[in-house]
Amino acid sequence: MDFGPYLLLASLEGAVLASVLALMASGLSLVFGVMRVVNVAHGEFYMLGAVLAWWVASLAGGSVVLGFVLALVLAPLIVGAIAATADIVVLRRLSYDPERTIVATIGLLYIIQQLTLMSYGPEARPVVAPFNTRLAIPWFEFADGGLRMYWPWGLSTTSYKLFVIFAAVAVLLGIRVMMTRSRAGLLMRATQQDREIAQAFGIPVERVYAVVFGIGAGLAALAGVLIVPIQQAHYLMGLDALLLSFIVVIIGGLGSLAGTVIAAVLIGMSEGIISVFFSPTLAKIIATLLVAFVLVFRPQGLMGKRVR
């Protein structure tokens, strides 16, 4: 097989990673943008999504498709409700003080992680994809003086991976429409820009915060549900995902959804491609190095605004 097919394969893997990352990181970015809260527990919401997906799928028993669809709907709702409760019970009482909320979300991280370990256990468990047809991909080569199509051995993807990419794109578009077109989005953006004045115009800021924290966590959970047929559910899976999300959000510009998506594609694709051709460790090194450069040369991130 030539270089081309390999590159295509690596890009597809990268695109799947990028989609999941974009979903998760946009949740982190939304929470930071509106609430100015750095949510260290975000990775645990992702893990909870994956674990709940396994749980729902195994409760649904026989029907794989039904179980998966239920998980896709229920897991983000449950996780969103847990997060909104955590916001009301913990973060609201800290008056959203930046330093104290970091410490509080670290605490939340360990509580969720250890509770999962105690109930779900240390095993990694798979969820069967609802559909997983192997799709062979054709490639072209020059032979006998003309272009010829052929099917290289091993060059394939699955229908599920394509579904993940499309689902992520659809959800991200939905979030964008919600933020720019809906009444709820208007309230969130007004709160983001001036919390005090938002209150002076009757916006129940605390309720907006609880909803935003819930939506942010719900996005992470959705990412977790989507990934679990590809990567198994494990109680420690949140840490790596959290790290990558932070990398994406810092590069994209904290609080900028567009920047987050661009950075997720950048990091996801390079991670996919570099992991295939070199090693996953090198991919991590390069991503971290990129963050260092962004912080030095463009601290507000690619699309972020300078703090006024």
């Binding site: 208007l186 309230l187 953006r189 007004a190 820009q193 004045i197 115009f201 009757g202 916006i203």
Partner: peptide, 16 residues
């Protein structure tokens, strides 16, 4: 609300 349009700023006043 600096990044919102004039219409949106007024809409927030209207919603109160």
């Amino acid at each position: 609300f600096a990044e919102l349009t004039v219409a949106q700023n007024l809409e927030i006043g209207m919603m109160t």
